[in-house]
């Protein structure tokens, strides 16, 4: 049931003109403030990016041993615990290693992933992490959304988000503070607690 609320308008309100001017004044206030101050809460993405908190769950990566092989032993704990069932692992035998088992193929279907982080918690080998801070997980094809072992192993060196790669290739267009060696493109100070 709808209850009509009585809000009697005053004479000035009924004229509308002063109210319009009052609105324009508020907008003008913000416009002038932004013209002379650099403290906008919005980020000029993709030229700028925000620092993600350390515990932010971004794109998955596979960690490696000192010799470059993936730490993963294909125990399937992550695939088992995954509520979206997006992890596919094919196990194989490594004849040369004392650690006998390794993943021949390790795929995560990022279209199905819900970023719960259970796979990271379940891993007994610290082989999978979501600490990349990468949230630009996108592509032009569905096939590319299936991240494979090679992609996730290289994610921290070389295969950065597209914008970052762009700035690495065209440094003159990069935003201030980007020198090509940083882990992440970061130029926004989050200390204001936005």
């Amino acid at each position: 049931m709808t209850l009509p609320v009585q809000r009697p308008r005053s004479f000035l309100e009924r004229l509308f003109i002063p109210e319009i001017l009052r609105g324009l004044y508020i907008t003008l206030q913000h416009g002038l403030h932004n013209l002379f101050h650099q403290d906008q809460p919005t980020v000029e993405y993709p030229d700028m990016r925000r620092v993600m908190p350390d515990r932010y769950k971004g794109a998955h990566r596979l960690t490696t041993r000192p010799d470059g092989k993936v730490k993963c032993v294909a125990c399937m704990c992550c695939a088992q615990v995954c509520p979206a069932r997006c992890i596919t692992i094919e196990a194989g035998e490594d004849a040369d290693e004392p650690i006998e088992k390794y993943p021949v193929q390790f795929q995560i279907d990022m279209l199905r992933c819900i970023y719960c982080g259970y796979c990271v918690e379940a891993c007994p080998k610290d082989a999978i992490r979501m600490d990349t801070g990468i949230y630009e997980i996108n592509s032009f094809t569905r096939q590319d959304m299936i991240h494979d072992k090679a992609y996730m192993t290289d994610l921290m060196d070389g295969k950065k988000p597209l914008a970052e790669k762009f700035y690495r290739d065209q440094p003159d267009q990069a935003p201030a503070g980007f020198d090509g060696t940083q882990d992440r493109v970061v130029s926004v100070d989050d200390s204001r607690g936005l």
Binding site: V73, A74, C75, C77, I99, E100, K101, P124, K125
Partner: peptide
């Protein structure tokens, strides 16, 4: 070594 053991 349960993670790599088939009996697991």
């Amino acid at each position: 070594d349960c993670p790599i053991c088939d009996q697991s």
